[in-house]
Design a protein around this nucleic acid. Sequence first.
RNA 1: GGCCCGUUCGUCUAGGGGUUAGGACGCCAGAUUUUCAUUCUGGAAACACGGGUUCGAUUCCCGUACGGGCUACCA
Length: 504
Amino acid sequence: MKKVRVRFAPSPTGGLHLGGVRTVLFNYLFAKHHGGEFVLRIEDTDQTRYVEGAEEYIMECLDWCGLKPDESPVAGGPFVPYRQSERKPMYLEYAEKLLSAGHAYYAFDTPEQLDAKRKEIPNFQYGQAFRNEMVNSLTLTDVEVKEYLERGVPHVIRIKMPANETISFTDMIRGEVSFDTTLVDDKVLLKADGMPTYHLAVVVDDYLMKISHAFRGEEWLPSAPVHLLLWKYLGWEAEMPEWAHLPLILKPEGNGKLSKRDGDRLGFPVYAMNWTDPKTGDLTRGFRELGFLPQAFVNMLAMLGWNDGTEQEIFTMDELIEKFSMERVSKAGAKFDFEKAKWFNAEWIKRSEVEGLRLMVEEVLEKNSITVTDQDYLDKVIALVKDRCVLLTDFWPQASFFFRRPAELDISAVKPKWNDDKTTFFEHLLTKIAASPNWNATDLENDFKVLAEEKAIKVGELMLPFRIMLVGGKFGPAVFDIAALIGKEETAERVNKFLTLVNE
RNA sequence: GGCCCGUUCGUCUAGGGGUUAGGACGCCAGAUUUUCAUUCUGGAAACACGGGUUCGAUUCCCGUACGGGCUACCA
């Protein structure tokens, strides 16, 4: 097998979509599984769609997900440049080669003329059926063409699709796929501005960059015959990559592929990270800022259309690399399920070591104006609450009371059953606490229970009030653990505060 | 419309000529946790339809239906 080289070739037009990240992931896993290289190539051939910051955003996404390209516009590599706009001069040569071999032709039709034609003819296709009615080097005389060219009349170069040929190939996921060339139109290869279209650019760059396997979304399947023919006409057939067209990620409710708008509408992220449109200033929320762990995000994406044949669902990147194979990717599109995505995240948080969570939790706390000064304390808090967090952002509601006194106490939860005996109990608890030389959960629990017995109050009647005092509400880890962690003084303060409040 | 791709619980999927069609998410019930979550146990829930092929099809073939993609000088 030749050296495996794959590429992810996004167009920098905005935020990186779930499906895009999954395409990168499958490329990456395949490459690393085979000890090959993963290339990032920017397909910025459409200047009208260029969006400021999109390229940087894409690279940051890859970085966050841990999908590091071996070659890229910033990392460089043996096949520079990796931005198609910077490769512009290279494409003309190949287009001309096709021209002289009769596999392509000049077309001078203006966009307006094409629009008119499309309106006039219901199923207009620039190809077999209508190319002879258009203004191109097939219908013009050589002299005319030469004259047009010399005059600088805007023109494109189109591929000349052959008639009545069946072109087929073996897709690594779908098996044999075939097309009738008569039904495929004469795609534009080189635009009037001298830039190649995707069709020419992928083929030329995949060849030049020695790409061994080309993986992309299923939406590219219909244009595969154009690419196959180009490989053939350019004389590179022997080096053509193997293809795999990945199934699409669909909207949760069924109809259509997932788009950014679905996220806004249904209330879940579609982009990997927050994306702010530089023109409108609109913010689209991403998985990262919502509180997803990159490992969980990657894991979830990998399972959307792939499995290893066992019942394992939680995989580390190394395991994915070890087990991934394109043949086990399913053919059908998958509807995105945000509930399952959250489950992956919760699993990852639970299974993560405290050290792995530290930085991210610290960030969440900082967003809530908490500066962590004692790392040991933070670690203990994380250990205590991580099992109850689904998103990293949950660490705030689940642990805020470890860092500041609860803003509000849910007194209504205990008030109806409150009485003077309970006040006395807690007052005595306070003096007992103050006198005790030890401060830990077990001793405290013991003192608490002994005292309850002395006062003839059921422990159960006292636990909830104690929790409300410390936490503010009916949630959180074991009360005595909380008390032990926040400290003797703080515990006393909170008890006192509650007592004055409840006895008002 | 044309072309291409697809179709197993609500969702993600395993499986594959003879299975009680397996798992996970979600949902429901119970247990544990003197809060909540976690955890554990159990439950409901699927082979789109019609023809073949076959002793036997959910599995193979052909149709139909349905879903999706493409049909730009966008990628």
